[in-house]
Nucleic acid binder design. Structure first.
Lengths: 350, 350
DNA sequence: TTGTATGCGTTATCAT
DNA sequence: ATGATAACGCATACAA
């Protein structure tokens, strides 16, 4: 790492305020403010004069002062485990794109999947007087005291993807049950009869729902549910590989894998190949999340797209609606998005 | 999409201020403020009383008011083309992690590679009184007027990855020349003698430097530079495929590809396989950026890691240093990070 | 050590 | 239509 320094002086103008304009024009600051805010109580001529002068003097509104005065900062906070996860960064993008045209700025916070951090982030966000919070709860979040506290302070909150049941809080999620069902159904349609499931932590709603959808699809097709076929994994590649090891110790081997994570699906595929099995001929595999890599593999992996961009946009819309309502009444809105099953080579047999 | 509404009343307490505390305790607001700010000019007993009462009353500092008073918002803005690109979201993560412990919040803005948006984003950020701006310029950014304007307003700015030459602006980039050199050198060491280069837009500094590093490595190894071997591509998969088509029309075919983008490298690999060529036996391939997918391919792709997390952290450190200096003097700091060549199956011959 | 008064930049209320 | 003034919540210079 190499670096070099150069010192130089910069001349920075003092920030110009409405008082500077008012002095120059021999009018009151109130008049200037009115002109700037399209207040009807002002003559056309003075308004135009003020506007012209403001531009000349390179006046910029101080949104901080505005915010203090109005009690509205026009900032929102987004709290996610890690912002560089493909899914989360896409949701944030959606939120940003929907909110920017309405004059909001998006502040990002990471929890690193840590409950303490989550509490901390919520608190500092509230101190900053943000107008709303979007969040996907951390895996280690046990109770919702911190969230209820935020609500009590009057901060609207919208959950996305990973939510908790908190009265008065809106949420935007995908139908994980349906996703699990669709994925399993597609495997069944390929002729698979012994479908194993690599589940995440079933204490988390999203994984529980994917699991339940899987079960329901089996039942609806009169396929037996084998408890041994359900392995708890942790979204890591290695976890997918060891799940396969475990499964292949069984007397009856699976002929398909529905994984609640793309990473475990990848690990499973790698392990299956290592064992000399052909995909999708011997074993069909479907993952979950539509991680970018699933598309680019030589054998592209079937997966479920959670439409993160849409999720972000809808979450933003829910927030905007909330802002337009009477602030004393909070609307709890539960939006459930339909995920998209993306069928690729890893689960197509014919 | 299904949704249901529930209406409910929430009771939100009015926000408590230092005046509320001062009234309750029969002291002045100034005293409360001092207690809250660890000001030495206060007795231990009153401080503790105030602190205790503040907690009891659930007092939260209003950072907006603080900001207005101090002229420091403790917010910074980050401007990138798209926040859900793996590289950018990782840089942002680095910035966030370095700045959060110092009490800063990170506001994100996207330009969509559009110059007008970039100008707009800078302006609204300045209105919000952010304390600094981090940015990677858009591909379509032609001049630097908007940036110089921001500087003139007194807003510190730090470039990362994609920079422009603006006096007084610090930057954190990787050594793209060295990266191009290292990648090419490694291909040469595999015995490749006819190395083609899929370059990006050579008007952009980063691509120009990668290209120049490639040329220098060839020269240093007494390999001929073939102008026909340098194809301009656009970071899309298809662009990589068509580049291969073009190259394989030549009389003399390449035996290696150094691509300035992982996506074009992928497209090239797909096309080469389609043509029946073996990688790395017939053709070695190296990409650029360490996109997540390169690691997970059945044949993992060699690439250059730009250490985005580190880049974000260093950019944040540069900013923090700047904040500690006399504000009338701006330090221009140019940090050049050494990228990491990641050699994988696509370019290992033995 | 504590209190009083003022200002940060706006906007809204009340006069004029 | 315009001006004077207060207020948003906090921090500090100055007084006491």
């Amino acid at each position: 790492m190499h670096d070099s320094n150069i010192f130089l002086l910069i001349t920075m103008k003092d920030k110009v305020t409405i008082y500077d304009i008012s002095k120059k024009l021999n009018v009151s600051a109130a008049t200037v403010s009115r002109a700037l805010n399209n207040n009807p109580k002002i003559s056309l001529s003075t308004r135009e004069l003020v506007l012209k002068t403001a531009k000349e003097m390179n006046y910029k509104q101080n949104r901080l002062a505005q915010a203090l005065k109005s009690g509205k900062s026009n900032n929102v906070g987004v709290i996610v485990p890690y912002i560089n996860r493909s899914f989360f960064s896409s949701v944030i993008r959606g939120i940003e794109e929907e909110l920017t045209p309405h004059g909001y700025h998006v502040i990002i916070c990471q929890t690193h999947e840590n409950y303490e951090n989550e509490i901390e982030q919520i608190n500092t966000l509230i101190n900053t007087q943000i107008d709303g919070i979007f969040m996907s709860v951390s895996k280690t979040t046990l109770n919702t005291d911190h969230i209820e506290k935020a609500l009590a302070e009057g901060t609207p909150l919208v959950f996305f993807d990973r939510k908790k049941e908190v009265p008065g809080v809106s949420s935007v999620i995908i139908d994980d049950f349906k996703a699990g069902y669709m994925a399993t159904q597609q495997l069944i349609e390929q002729g698979c009869k012994r479908i194993a499931h690599l589940s995440g932590d079933l204490n988390l709603e999203i994984y529980k729902n994917r699991h339940d959808g899987y079960i329901k699809a089996l039942e609806d097709n009169n396929l037996e549910v084998e408890p041994d076929f359900i392995i708890k994994t942790n979204s890591k590649i290695e976890s997918g590989a060891s799940a396969i090891e475990e499964l292949w110790k069984l007397k009856k081997k699976p002929d398909a894998i529905f994984s609640a994570s793309d990473y475990t699906a990848l690990g499973a595929i790698q392990e299956l190949k290592k064992m000399g099995l052909k995909i999708p001929k011997d074993v069909c595999v479907t993952g979950f999340s539509n991680e970018p890599f699933t598309k680019y593999m030589e054998l592209p992996i079937s997966t479920v797209d959670q439409t993160p961009l849409t999720m972000g946009k809808i979450a933003a819309q829910v927030f905007l609606e909330q802002m337009n309502e009477n602030k004393k009444v909070s609307i709890e809105k539960k939006v459930v998005l339909t995920p998209e099953l993306i069928v690729r080579g890893s689960s197509i047999r014919n």
